[in-house]
Structure formats: C-alpha cells, structure tokens
Design a protein around this nucleic acid. Structure first.
Lengths: 214, 214
DNA sequence: ACTCATATTGAATGATTATTCAATACAAAA
DNA sequence: TTTTGTATTGAATAATCATTCAATATGAGT
C-alpha cells in the first residue's frame, strides 16, 4: 500500500512529457481529428474533450501548430515502437518476422479507421508543412530499410532471385499505404482479414514453398 | 473568316458548365489547394488567381463548399476519362490494355505532385464529408470492376490460377494508391519510371511468360 | 441613345477561432 | 496561518474568412 504519491520535485516541468495533462491533450487532439477532421479541429474542442480550459491548452503547447505536431509525433512513435519490437525479436526467424509485421500493420491498434483518418490528415499537409514531413519521413526510412534487410534474408533462405529485396519491400510498403487508405473509404470491404490475406497471398506467390503465408 | 461569335442565347446560364469563369475558378481552386493545402485555401486567394472578384466566386458557386466539390468532381472526371478510353480501345489486347492502364496511372498528367496533393487533401476529409466520399467512391467502384474483368481475360490467356482476378486487381489498386502517396513524400525517389517498373515487375512475376511486362 | 437584363464588383457584416493575459485557485514551505 | 510560486482559468482581443448585397458595368435589343 501507501504508494508514494508523485514526489514531484521543483523541476516538475523540466521535461514536458511527465505531465498528465500533456498526454490528455494529445489524446483529445487525436480523437478530435478522427471525429471532425484536421480542418475542423479547434483548440476549444480539444480542450473541452481533455477537460481543461482553452487558455491552458494553448499555454501548455505554446501554439495549436505545436499541439498538432506533438500529436503526430506521438502517433508516429507509437507505430514505430510496434514494429521496432518485431524487428528486434530474436525468437523469430525471417519469415515469422514478416508475418508478424503484416499482422501488426493490420492490427486493431494500428489500422483502425480513426487512426488512419488522423494519419491521412497529416499526410495531406505534408507538402506544405516541412515539420510534418520530417517526422513521417525519418521513421519511414528506417522502416523501409529494416524491411528490405529482412526480405533479403527471406530471399536467401528461399532462393528467390527474380525480385530484388528492394522491389519486394517497396511493393509491400505501397500496398500497406494503399490498403490503409482504402480502409478509410470502405472499412467493411477492406477488413483486416482481407488486407492481411491479400498481402500474404502476394508473398505466397513469390515464395511458393513457404507454407506459412497461408 | 468571320467566325460567328458566340451567338449566346438568353439561356446562357442554363448549364453552368459553359461559362469560362466557371472553369477558371475550378482551375484556380486546384492550383491553390496544390500550393497551399486545403486548409489554407481561401476564396479570396482562389478568386485572385482566377482574376475575378471575391464576391463573384461566391456568387457563382453558391458556397465555398460547392466550389471545392465542383473541383473534386472535375478532377475525378478527368481521371475517369483517361482510363475509360483505355478500357474501350478495341485495338488493344488484354495485356496491352493493362500496360496502358499502368502508364496512364503514372503519366505526368495524372500522377504529378500537385494533383496528388489535391487528391489526398480530399481523401483526408472523406470520413467527414459524405459528398466527397460519394464522388470518389462511385468512380473507384467502376474502375475496380473494369480492372478485375480485364485481369480475368489476362488470367485466362496466361492460364494463371493461383491468384484470382480480384486479388490481382485489388493488389494493383492498392499499390497505385500507395505509390501516389509516396510520390507526395519523395517525388525524386518515386519517379514515374520507378513506379511503373515496380508494378510491371509485379505482373511479370505473375505472368512469367508475358515478355511485355518488361 | 436608351432600356433592361445580366455579370461583376468590392466593401461591409458577422461568425469563428487562435492567442493573450490578468485574475484566481492551489499547494507546499515557513 | 501566511507566504510564495506555480497551475489553471475564462473573458477579452485581434485576425481571418465566408457570405451578403447594394452599386455599377456591360452589352444586346430597340
């Protein structure tokens, strides 16, 4: 019992991240964008959802732009953590890893309509706000290169030579982006199962002997 | 000589489409969205680019929303016309048709960064504006079904049986959407040639005997 | 030249919204 | 309890914009 409460030093604001309100506001931002779109997201609405005053939201994040940026960063990190873990999992062989990656990319936590709506909102502004671009781009580069390396291992094990690892990995990445977008349009038709199966079929076609790509 | 000028009847406004200003405003809208993003597109800017007064732009289209909708419709029709023509071209055999479709989807007229920026802007709002969705969705359904039918013909000619026409066509469509999005991020890396080659390689892998998928 | 209908203007209006900031609540230290 | 520093409020401000509309230009028909 007696959980030592907070014991927050006088440096409590040294690192913004430790505040509860900080995260409440970010969550509220994501929810609001998901429900109303980036264009119709106002500080007032976000603050209301986070149950703090409007003035506070602005004070805390300095500006709306900064709040949006922090929310994108959060989403981006969340995604990154999810695949990072898979690439680093030593209990998996290459093909097992690929399968986990596919499952992660179409898991409920990642590929749900709300989060996709937020992603696409930010994507759509990438051309005009370099700060959005740099957040998205850096992580995508890492994901790309990790994926390519992984496919290289799979290729060797299955002596596949017609398609290069780069080609396979780029095809995979573009399919994922495309399918996510399609989930936004028609989530019934593009169910998680449908998407995963489509991608597994792609791999099955390349690696004919590998039975795990159902 | 003496080209009979206009001979516009008193019904000149019967059909909105015949006005020059109408199209000037739509073009200006697309350019403005491409340059500044949907969120920062104002009627004042569009009117200025179209060289009409702000009041006129609003008067002509009834509302900003309606102007945006008309612009999306225009873009959507332009795209539809481009592939419609290919599906209806009787001089082409199935594989020739597929190749033309790929080339069209990554032609300078369709897959340039400005137009993609506009598409994605609208996509990102699809969840919140049913009117956007219905414009995009209807055409996508036709494109999908035409594509599937086309692949069915290719499949038969090449006795391919592992992947269904539906699967191949869905894979193609999602790749296109994904690659378009990636062009937005990094148009240098995702050049038209790169995208087309990637997709052709996909088909080449499926239809191993078909040499035309370079 | 005059009339009349339509096209076009641009300034005014009102709504929305990010941002600011003086006032207040709160909680720890004295 | 009082002090003091920080957290939080909410009302005021100022900027931005879509929309309206009375005024004007235009040009065809008489």
């Amino acid at each position: 019992m007696n959980i030592s409460p907070k014991k927050i030093s006088d440096h409590q604001l040294e690192d913004q991240e430790i505040s509860i309100n900080h995260q409440k506001l970010i969550d509220a931002t994501i929810e609001t964008i998901a429900k109303r779109g980036l264009g119709d997201t106002t500080i007032a609405q976000v603050a209301k959802k986070a149950m703090v005053s409007q003035g506070y939201a602005n004070f805390r994040f300095k500006s709306k732009e900064n709040l949006l940026l922090s929310s994108l960063k959060f989403l981006s990190d969340e995604y990154k953590n999810s695949w990072q873990r898979i690439f680093e999992d030593n209990n998996l062989d290459p093909v097992g890893r690929v399968i986990k990656i596919i499952e992660n990319d179409f898991s409920g936590k990642i590929a749900n309509r709300n989060k996709i709506a937020v992603w696409v909102s930010f994507y759509s502004e990438v051309k005009f706000r370099p700060s959005y671009l740099s957040i998205c781009q850096k992580q995508d580069e890492i994901y790309s290169s990790q994926m390519e390396k992984l496919i290289k291992e799979v290729n060797i094990l299955n002596n596949q030579s017609f398609l290069t690892p780069r080609e396979i990995s780029e095809t995979y990445l573009s399919m994922v982006d495309g399918l996510w977008q399609r989930i936004l349009f028609d989530p019934k038709m593009y169910s998680h199962v449908f998407c995963k199966d489509l991608i597994k079929k792609y791999f099955r076609n390349i690696y004919a002997d590998e039975k795990r790509f159902v």
